[in-house]
Simulated scan of single mutants.
Amino acid sequence: MKASQTTPWNLISGILGVTCLLLMATMGILLKNLYSKQSIQRTFSPDAITELQKGSSCCSCPEKWIGDQCNCYFFSGELKTWKESRDFCASQNSSLLQIQNGEKLHFAISSTYYYWIGLSYHKERSAWLWEDGSTVSQDLLPLVQGLRKEKCVMYSSARSVLDEPCEEKYRFICERKLI
């Protein structure tokens, strides 16, 4: 008699167990999809990226690039030397970041990392020049005056620059101008 009474309870507990497993599997799939979408967003940069400025309807950037004001930016998670960074950007039809004024990156950098940018010292011209040959703007000039000329330049979210040996490996920012 006891065996027949426990059979319905065994059946009910089995059904409840299977139901719990199905609910847990469904929840796992939903969470995986939620977090994979967030991680795709964050692959643009290894850092937390602040809100992008709106109104950049002319941008059509490649995957993992951030569009802002008709330019595309790539924030590397990979560490490279300054030359390797410059070569990577060139292979992507872009260049290392060129900052014309202190406001340029207020939309994107919000971390403690420093990034290689496209500024270097040219001995022939005795001046700090961007990759395109242009000079540093007057509002950025005070930032670079204390830098050592034999080193390469990095930029941080604190709008500060740092000089480091060019052979050291750091993150970098590529910029692709669309207009």
Rank of each mutant, 00 (worst) to 15 (best):
G77Q: 15
I40Y: 13
S45E: 09
F88Q: 13
A158S: 10
Q5V: 04
L16I: 13
M154W: 06
L129N: 03
Y170T: 09
W82R: 00
S137T: 09
W130G: 02
S56N: 08
G118M: 01
I117V: 07
E131G: 08
C72E: 06
A127W: 11
L52Y: 11
G118T: 05
E150H: 06
L141W: 04
L119C: 03
L97A: 08
P165D: 11
W116I: 00
L79T: 03
K2V: 09
R42W: 10
N101S: 09
R171L: 07
A48F: 09
I179D: 15
C59I: 12
C58Q: 12
I66A: 14
P62S: 10
F107H: 11
A127F: 10
L96G: 02
Y170F: 14
L11V: 04
E167P: 14
H106Y: 10
P165H: 15
T19Q: 12
W130R: 03
R148S: 15
S85D: 04
G14S: 02
I173M: 03
I117N: 00
Q38D: 12
I66S: 13
I29A: 05
L141A: 15
F88M: 11
A90R: 13
K149R: 07
I49T: 15
T50G: 15
Q5L: 01
I109S: 13
C58F: 06
T19G: 06
C61E: 00
K151E: 02
Q41N: 10
K169G: 02
L105E: 01
K149M: 14
F75M: 10
I179E: 12
Y155G: 06
G67R: 00
R86F: 11
S157F: 01
I40F: 11
S95K: 00
L143W: 07
L129F: 07
D163N: 08
A90V: 05
E175N: 01
W9N: 05
V153I: 08
P142R: 02
Q98M: 09
E175S: 14
W82G: 08
G17T: 03
D68A: 15
G118F: 00
S36N: 14
V161T: 14
A25C: 09
Y115I: 05
Y113A: 15
R125F: 12
R159V: 04
